[in-house]
Write a protein that binds this DNA or RNA. Sequence first.
DNA 1: CCGGGCAGGTGGTCATTACCGGTTATTATA
DNA 2: TATAATAACCGGTAATGACCACCTGCCCGG
Lengths: 239, 239
Amino acid sequence: MLDKDSPVPLHVQLRDLLREQILSGTLAPHTQLPSERELCLQYGVSRITVRQALGELSHEGLIYTTVGKGTYVAVPKVQEELQPLSSFTEDVRRRGMTASSRVLQATIVPADDHLADLLRMPRGAEVVRLHRLRLANGLPLAIQLTWLPHHLCPGLLAYDLASRSLFDILRREYHLRLVRAETSIEAALATPEERELLQLPTPAAVLISEQTTYLDTDAVIEFARSVFRGDSYRLHARM
Amino acid sequence: MLDKDSPVPLHVQLRDLLREQILSGTLAPHTQLPSERELCLQYGVSRITVRQALGELSHEGLIYTTVGKGTYVAVPKVQEELQPLSSFTEDVRRRGMTASSRVLQATIVPADDHLADLLRMPRGAEVVRLHRLRLANGLPLAIQLTWLPHHLCPGLLAYDLASRSLFDILRREYHLRLVRAETSIEAALATPEERELLQLPTPAAVLISEQTTYLDTDAVIEFARSVFRGDSYRLHARM
DNA sequence: CCGGGCAGGTGGTCATTACCGGTTATTATA
DNA sequence: TATAATAACCGGTAATGACCACCTGCCCGG
C-alpha cells in the first residue's frame, strides 16, 4: 500500500490515495470512512500520520468529521472550486456543454513592444498568435485572441486546435506546468465585428477578459483576450 | 499566558495569541518567529501543540516557513492574497481614490422566497435592505443593492453607512469574521434607471456582480448585487 | 587569506501513549 | 416493557521522544 522507504511522506501518500478514491467515486458521498484507528492498522502507520492526511482532506472540503461518530465523504460542491486554471474548453465542459472552436487565424508573428512586455520577451521574438471563435453547443460564445511565446511551445500550430483544449496540449504535449493566472474583467459595448461573429443584435454588451497565465518558473506562457457574449456567459469565482 | 484548565484547546489559544500579535503589528512582516522548540519552552506546551497552531496560521497565510531556517511573518494580505473579502470601499481606496456612498434607501423587509434561499433564512425573517449609489472621487461608479440577515447585525441602520465601509462595521462593531465569498459576474446593457444614476449615455454596458459573503460559521452574512459602469471599472483577480 | 567540513539549529516527519468528551448500542434495572 | 446505567467506539487534544534533510556560521587546515 504505502511505501515507507519512499521520499514522499507517508501522510502525503495516504492523503493522495484517499483523495483518489473519493474523486473517482470509489467512496461515495456520505460514506463513512474507516475510523482513524482502523486506518492505522490497515496501512501500518501511526494515528498522527492518519490525522495529518485526513486533516488536509478536510481542509480541501473532501471529507467532514463528526465527533463521536466518524469521518464521512463530503458531497461534491455544486460548483466545485472553479478551477483557477481552467481553459474555455474545460469551463464549458464542466457546464455540461460541448465545446468547439473555429480557428479564424493561426500564425507566427514578431512581438511588438506591447506584446513583448506582456509576454516578458524581447521585442521581435516569435509569438504564436491564435484567433479563435469559441462555440458552446455549436453556438458562438466568445472571440478569443491568444498569444504564446513560440519558443515555449514550438510546433504548436500542428495540433488540432479546433477541438482540443489549448491548456491540455500545453500540459500533456509540452509538459508545461501552469500554476498561476491573473485576470482582469470589464464590460463594454460590442463592436460591429464582434456583433457579427457572435451573432448579437445592436446594441449588445460583452464581457471582456484579459488573462495572463504563468508557469511554475514564473514565465508567461499565454496572454489571452476574450470577448464573451454578455447575455449567456457568467464568470464564477470563489475566494 | 496559556490556560491549561480552559476548555479552549491549547493550540487554539496559542494560535489566537500569535495571530493577534501579527495582525496588530507587534510582529512585523518578515520578522522571524521564535523557533518551534523555543515556543514550547515559552508557553510550556509540546511541539505538537505548537506545530498545530503554526500550521493553521500558515493555512491562513499569516506566516510562512523555510526548512532549515525558520518561521516568518508573511507580508500583509492586502497585496498578496488579492482582495478575497474586500468591500467596494476598500477596493476603491486601494486604487488611491476616495470612496463615498449615497444611501438611496435603507429599510428592513421580510424575506421573500428567493431572498430566504440566498441568505439561508426562513421565509418572512427580517432582512436589512440597503440600496446605495457608490462614488469614487465623487463620480458615480456603481449601484449596489445589499441584503443582510437582520439578526446577525441588529441596529445596523444606526451606523453611518454613507461614509463607513459596511465590511468594516461588520468586522469591528459586530465582531463578525467574514471568511469566504462567491462571486458571479456578467455583462449587460444598462437599464434607463441605471443609466440615469450612473450618468451613462445610451446605449451603455455595465458589469453586474452578484456576491454572497460567508462567515466562519458558514452562515451567509450578505448578498450583494452591484451594477458597475463598464467603462471605468475593472475587476482584477489573481488565481 | 580562503575554502571546505562540521556542528548546531531549524522545520518536517513519525511512533507511542494517554486521556477527554460525545455518540451509540447493549445491558441491567425498575 | 420502558428506562436508566454502562461499555465500546469515535474523533480531539496533548506530551514525549526520535530521526531526517536542510541551512548557516564557525573553525581549522591548506
